[in-house]
């Protein structure tokens, strides 16, 4: 993407715009608040994001929760229309530029999110989905990520519908990286918000309680591996389906060949010319059914996401363990090793 931009020069209309998502302090706090509130009830939160488009970035300035429980599309539309009208009356940006969702361990790459995101991006091309991870955040690391469907997959779905075929996946070279693209996020405060934060620091200073040098790993690893297993199982069953599908196609193909051969044999016996290509096509007007690929591509992307999460988590766990080791007891050994290393440095010829 970057290379194309470099070649074409900045500001091309056909370029996928808004390469960065900018949040203000209010949105960050609103998303956290709305997701945390529902988390205490054991539910996942979802909501709308409002904002505006700038040349290079997507600015998100307001977030509000969607309706809870079972609602019809009509109800949800009415609610968001009404909300947007009221926001405009308050002078707040009321263009819906995406949505947010809470999901733990990055397990959001599924059918539902894919279809919803497609709908948002069809309406406003720049729309993003913000994924908030309440578990990681409560461990001390704000985990908020922005994703958007890649342009290749958007084209395919526009052409083939949500059950896109294997052929188009192959042609567009869709892979786990190009399905959902992560868009970098930055948070920008206004001067006024900075003033407010300074006031808050005076009246309610941060307790500096850092829970995140926590050494326990098994809990999170266990959950991650569980999710990974689930994903791989799903992938396997999808693969099995695909194999069955291919077998069926093979059978169909051999059936057709047999039928054509029989007809040809009859014609030969009567002394008529053989079936032409067109005649054969007329006999079987319908092409072979294609197996839907959407699920398998999504699952693959999800598994890849889990793997990345595990990678990140493992890396930081290992470094934390290293640190703990250095602090505990190992100090003596390492200082002894250090002293001997210095000795060698000082007297290299011995």
């Amino acid at each position: 993407m970057a290379t194309r931009r470099d070649l074409d020069g900045p500001g091309r209309a056909d370029e996928s715009p808004a390469q960065i998502v900018q949040l203000n302090a209010l949105v960050v706090m609103q998303i956290i608040k709305q997701c945390e509130e529902l988390r205490s009830l054991g539910e996942h939160a979802e909501g709308y994001l409002c904002g505006l488009l700038e040349a290079e970035r997507l600015e998100i300035t307001y977030a509000y929760p969607s309706l809870r429980g079972e609602t019809t599309d009509q109800e949800a539309d009415d609610y968001s229309d009404e909300m947007n009208r009221r926001l405009r009356q308050q002078g707040i940006d009321n263009m819906v530029v995406g949505w947010y969702k809470s999901a733990v361990f990055g397990s959001f790459l599924n059918r539902e999110v894919f279809e919803a995101q497609y709908a948002y991006q069809s309406a406003v091309e720049e729309s993003v989905v913000l994924i908030y991870d309440p578990v990681r955040t409560s461990q001390g690391l704000l985990t908020l990520k922005a994703y958007r469907l890649g342009p290749e997959i958007m084209n395919i779905v526009k052409k083939d519908g949500l059950e896109f075929s294997m052929e188009s996946v192959r042609q567009a070279k869709i892979n786990v990286e190009t399905l959902f693209q992560e868009i970098p996020i930055r948070i920008k405060n206004s001067h006024f918000v900075n003033a407010m934060l300074s006031e808050l620091e005076v009246i309610a200073p941060s307790p500096n309680k850092r829970p995140f040098l926590d050494l326990s790993t098994s809990n999170i690893l266990e959950k991650n591996v569980g999710l990974l297993l689930e994903g791989v199982d799903h992938l396997l069953s999808e693969n099995a389906k695909l194999t069955n599908h291919q077998k069926r196609i093979q059978r169909l193909q051999s059936d057709r060949i047999r039928i054509v051969q029989r007809k040809n044999a009859q014609r030969q016996a009567k002394g008529e010319p053989l079936l032409t290509e067109d005649e054969i096509n007329q006999m079987f007007p319908r092409p072979f059914p294609d197996s839907p690929r959407a699920d398998i591509v999504l699952t693959a992307a999800q598994v890849s996401q889990y793997c990345d999460k595990i990678g990140q988590f493992s890396a930081q766990s290992l470094s934390k363990m290293q640190m703990a080791e250095a602090l505990q007891g190992k100090l003596k050994d390492s200082s002894a090793a250090f002293v001997s290393a210095i000795h060698k440095e000082v007297q290299p010829n011995q």
Binding site: V28, I32, P134, T137, L141, L142, I187, V193, L197, S206
Partner: peptide, 9 residues
């Protein structure tokens, strides 16, 4: 979680 967000902001 709010504190985490606030600290980052």
């Amino acid at each position: 979680a709010e504190r985490v967000g606030l600290d980052l902001i």
